[in-house]
Design a protein around this nucleic acid. Structure first.
Lengths: 343, 343
DNA sequence: ATGAAAGCGCTAACAA
DNA sequence: TTGTTAGCGCTTTCAT
């Protein structure tokens, strides 16, 4: 089925392709009668300008790409990303931009990037040093890094270290010494270096609190976990079967914490009486579960908004040729939120 | 900053643009030495083929568009869509497709559609009769309808009516007569006709159970609610202040049910002792809240997968010129899941 | 007020 | 094995 193009419409309406183009983009340049006739014909024939051709000429598609560290289906299972994407979208809605998500296809992002007709990227969970990222840089494509280390490009991060410190400090001050830590597995160099920065910063924060008070840091008490409820369950169970008997738990993500709670309850423990727990992120789930999850709050929604704001700022910089020395690094604050999983 | 194009690379590498193109797309057609030289030069110059130009020629972008009934930020606040989008993405991941979301911009989808370089649409919550949808049809763009009435195009729906019937029947059989119904507001013709089909089908299901047993259906006991926790809270409160004293509650969406539960508890009621509640959708929240929400289960994830499968099927049909008479209407089953909000 | 023609960046017949 | 050439569908000067 051949798609109708501008020439078809022009011919049927008895005008030139230029006229048809004007009828859609600059109607004021044309006799309003002609505009009407052309519009009529177009509708009748089911014509609509081809978006790809338009984008090719304009060198701009109105689409922003969000590069994610995991397959999309995994990401969408994570409440953190829900809120983050909401933040981006709220800005998209305002700016009439469309949002496209890209995840590693067959383990690599190359494919995905090469095919994405986007005006810029928001890159989540990769450091600037990452291979694909440096390619973008070289190609002169605008991007903003989120949850990743950056120096040359704008970035949005939170104060992971401080948040982690506060959480650990709280439990230690309450007298806990046998604290199980379920850490993001990305801190262990398993998966690429995704989130490497974030995971390491949180680890350092926990550690700082331990060191400061002189509590022994035992590596066997730190387990890498995928960032999901299942991950939390499995690793809590694993710890228990290894003989660990924690009185408190630090989880580097809320989902992990919630999974661990379920596992603990299943083993007959009472939360928070037998086990105090502090998660990380303050995702929507934290206030929904029973008991409410004590956690480190980070402004997730705002993070998304700010990321897109920075990206838009980049476009404007490029347009007005202001030098790129700016490269803003935004650091958003974190704080402790106490709910029902701590006493 | 001028972007490097194929000609620049060709010149620098001392070959023709064709050679460069081949080096990227059909390396086997070229002397491997030449390929290497070209690749080197390309990397050095930071060159990457322009995705828009590619898509223009191929008449195919590898992107599928998901048309949503509400602004993206609203949609992402809804657990139903999380799971649905996960279903689509799981298929995307497998097929190396990218996913782009479009929401009404400034109240209309025209803008968004006109700018979307997609290979096809998954349209959620609109009927085939909807203006924008019929435009697509005319333009010859492939699409699949989800949660909407269709005859000419493929569609995926669930058995809304039966699910609603089961829920209402259950409560009625337990002896309840004062049943508050928090219905999707889209059943009331407020917002366009979005979800019109779905909302009406659920309404009919509830009604059928009432009629069958001869329970009086009172329109004042049916309140339109936006599909969110806030909506559920507000409408439960509104009902209460109107003097309604329900002993049971049917909510046409889980989010509504959960909001209503919170409102009820705040008024000192015990769930399920004072108020039995059945939601709709069985979204992830339903099993997370305390007490667990009894609800009508629908296979949300699968719905997303099937939708994309149908779309891909359309492409293949078009390619092999099989006539389009097929237009599969898929109906997925629903069933009742009892948890803690019923006795 | 309207049209002819050049080109956005790329691919793919067809030649050489 | 490599290059020439003609578009993909559209926008946009520059003429008329």
């Amino acid at each position: 089925m051949k798609r109708i193009n501008i020439a078809d419409v022009a011919q049927k309406a008895g005008v030139s392709p230029t006229a048809v183009s004007f009828a859609f983009n600059k109607p004021e340049q044309l006799n309003s009668e002609t505009v009407n006739r052309i519009r009529m014909t177009a509708i009748e024939m089911g014509y609509m300008p081809n978006p790809m051709a338009r984008a090719l000429i304009a060198q701009r598609s109105g689409i922003i790409g969000v590069m994610l560290p995991q397959p999309l289906s995994t990401v969408l299972a994570n409440p953190y990303f829900h809120t983050f994407l909401q933040g981006i979208s709220s800005m998209c809605d305002e700016q009439a931009l469309s949002l496209m998500t890209l995840s590693p296809m067959n383990g690599s992002l190359d494919q995905a990037i090469a095919r994405s007709p986007v005006d810029g990227f928001i890159i989540v969970g990769y450091n600037e040093a990452h291979h694909e990222v440096s390619l973008l840089r070289k190609r002169g494509i605008q991007y903003v890094l989120v949850d990743g280390d950056a120096t040359c490009a704008p970035s949005v991060n939170i104060d992971d270290e401080q948040g982690a410190y506060l959480a650990a400090k709280y439990l230690i001050d309450k007298g806990h010494r046998d604290i199980l830590i379920l850490m993001l597995d990305t801190a262990f160099g398993h998966a690429d270096e995704e989130l490497h920065g974030v995971a390491m910063r949180r680890m350092r924060g926990y550690r700082r609190a331990f060191d400061e008070v002189g509590v022994v840091w035992r590596d066997e008490w730190v387990l890498p976990s995928v960032s999901s409820m299942i991950g939390g369950q499995q690793n809590f169970d694993a710890a228990y079967e290894q003989g660990l008997r924690p009185t408190a738990l630090l989880a580097a993500a809320d989902a992990i914490a919630i999974g661990a709670i379920q596992a603990a309850i299943r083993r007959g423990m009472k939360v928070p009486q037998d086990l105090e727990i502090i998660g990380y992120d303050d995702s929507v789930l934290a206030s929904l579960v029973q008991p409410g999850l004590s956690t480190v709050h980070q402004p997730i929604f705002e993070k998304g908004r700010v990321a897109l704001e920075l990206l838009i700022g980049e476009w404007e910089n490029a347009a007005t040729r202001i030098t790129d020395v700016s490269a803003k690094q935004v650091w958003l604050p974190t704080h402790l939120v106490l709910r029902g999983t701590t006493t």
